[in-house]
């Protein structure tokens, strides 16, 4: 939803770009930015420049991995709910309800502190090859974010799968396609096109949940800004810059998705 609105905003902005009051507003905004640049302290920037870039990279990496994995998980979840038999649909529905009914922060802490405190009790886990990974924080962060994305997106995919007209599938079967081929060539692409606008919004939401992993000591861009704040005792500057960075990433994401959306055929259904 956020994505669509932003796209509309962009369209409106380019068509009515230069109106007198806009120019005044832009000047005021510029003045605010300049005032912020001059009157606030930014001398910490060079020192934390590299850490910041690394943090941004890590945030984006987490975003990409969790979105892709979550989407892969969401497809079977949606399919099970849309077309599966009862014993397949019910667990999927329960999973989606649980994920969507509890705060992500709680899920994250449940996995990290809850599961994380269980693992060391079993010696065979400590001796296995997985232990070096399980001791770190990021697998839990990625797992929690992936599950959350899958939960929300699974619900979207359910609607998308159910929305593909039955005739399309029947026609595919009549052409002699196997079930798998019909799914791969007809059902999945059409459902994907339907889900794409929502997918934009979900991805932006996912971006906005990535800073939560900082609470379990993954050093993403949010954690970097917290560190700057602790080191320099500055409250606003790092947070303002952080907000700006997130806004920029959101803008880029929305733009990229609108480009993808423009490429798909828009006569559906």
């Amino acid at each position: 939803m956020a994505g669509e609105a932003a796209i509309i905003n962009v369209a409106a902005r380019t068509s009515l770009w230069l109106q007198p009051h806009r120019i005044v507003l832009i000047l005021i905004a510029l003045g605010l930015v300049l005032a912020a640049a001059f009157f606030m302290r930014w001398d910490w920037l060079p020192q934390y420049y590299e850490a910041g870039l690394l943090g941004i990279w890590r945030s984006l990496w987490i975003l990409a991995v969790t979105c892709v994995l979550g989407f892969l998980l969401a497809v079977p979840l949606g399919l099970a709910q849309a077309a599966g038999p009862f014993w397949f649909a019910a667990p999927a529905k329960v999973f989606c309800t649980i994920i969507r009914g509890t705060p992500l922060l709680l899920q994250l802490w449940l996995l990290y502190y809850g599961l994380g405190s269980l693992f060391p009790q079993y010696p065979w886990i400590r001796e296995s090859w997985m232990w070096p990974y399980l001791r770190q924080a990021w697998p839990y962060g990625v797992l929690a974010l992936t599950l959350s994305f899958a939960g929300y997106e699974g619900e979207v995919m359910r609607g998308a799968f159910a929305g593909v007209p039955k005739g399309q599938l029947e026609a595919a079967r009549a052409f002699g396609m196997s079930r798998w081929k019909a799914f791969r060539r007809i059902w999945l692409p059409q459902a994907f096109y339907r889900a794409l606008p929502t997918l934009t919004g979900e991805t932006v939401l996912q971006l906005k949940s990535t800073p939560l992993v900082a609470t379990i000591s993954v050093i993403d861009i949010f954690a970097v800004s917290s560190k700057v704040r602790q080191d320099t005792y500055l409250t606003y500057e790092p947070l303002l810059l952080l907000a700006l960075i997130y806004m920029a990433i959101t803008g880029i994401l929305v733009f990229a998705f609108s480009r993808i959306e423009a490429r798909i055929p828009n006569k559906i259904g």
């Binding site: 932003a6 906005k208 303002l240 806004m247």
Partner: peptide, 14 residues
Amino acid sequence: TAVRAVPELVLILL
């Protein structure tokens, strides 16, 4: 636009 583009966590801190 700004509020919806920035993570809630950052906004809450700010």
